[in-house]
Design a protein around this nucleic acid. Structure first.
Length: 165
DNA sequence: ATAAAGGCCACCC
DNA sequence: GGGTGGCCTTTAT
């Protein structure tokens, strides 16, 4: 996993996915964003806000190709999620959860050696920039509830169901 | 610097 | 089921 601002060949675009339309952004250093936004407008604002220095070129064709690789071919491109040390450690932990399994926010806190930081873990998971590939959807509440999802609970449920089979 | 807001949890009622 | 206090990081004043 890298940690570089997306400066070389920054590209973004939209494509259909099994879970609705998604927005993908990447550079030569890997994927820096994958979201399931409500609107294209909102998704772009979000990008601009997170990378004010970067001028992304739009290329839906390329995006569609990559999205296919991800959801149909199962091929995982290089990731470049940008965040604080704390966030990185959590996003790393998320990638250890096998497909079809789930954990709880508390267990993630335990896994990174900060058992008391449960709440902060929730916030950090909510800040996950690369949906699906960093499987934040596989984390649920300790009391059996499903927990939150930045792009809508319906979406989280859909992904979980889809992964179960 | 400080405050306010979180995808939580355990404990109470 | 619901409410409360504690815990910890991030972001916005």
């Amino acid at each position: 996993m890298r940690q570089l601002p997306p400066q070389s060949n920054p590209t973004f675009g939209f494509s259909d996915s099994p879970f609705g339309e998604c927005c993908l952004a990447f550079s030569n250093d890997g994927i820096c964003a994958l979201t399931f936004p409500e609107s294209r407008e909102g998704a772009f604002i979000d990008l601009e806000h997170r990378f004010p220095e970067t001028d992304f070129k739009r290329d839906d064709k390329r995006v569609t190709r990559i999205i296919r690789q991800i959801f149909e071919g199962g091929k995982i491109p290089e990731l470049n999620p940008i965040g604080t040390e704390f966030q990185q450690s959590i996003w790393r932990a998320l990638q250890q959860i096998p497909k079809g399994k789930t954990t709880t926010y508390a267990q993630i806190a335990e896994a990174i050696g900060r058992p008391k930081a449960v709440r902060a873990v929730g916030t950090a998971i909510g800040a996950n920039p690369i949906a699906y590939l960093i499987p934040c959807h596989r984390v649920t509440k300790s009391d059996g509830g499903i927990g939150g999802f930045r792009w809508g609970l319906e979406c989280k449920k859909k992904i979980l169901d889809w992964e179960k089979k």
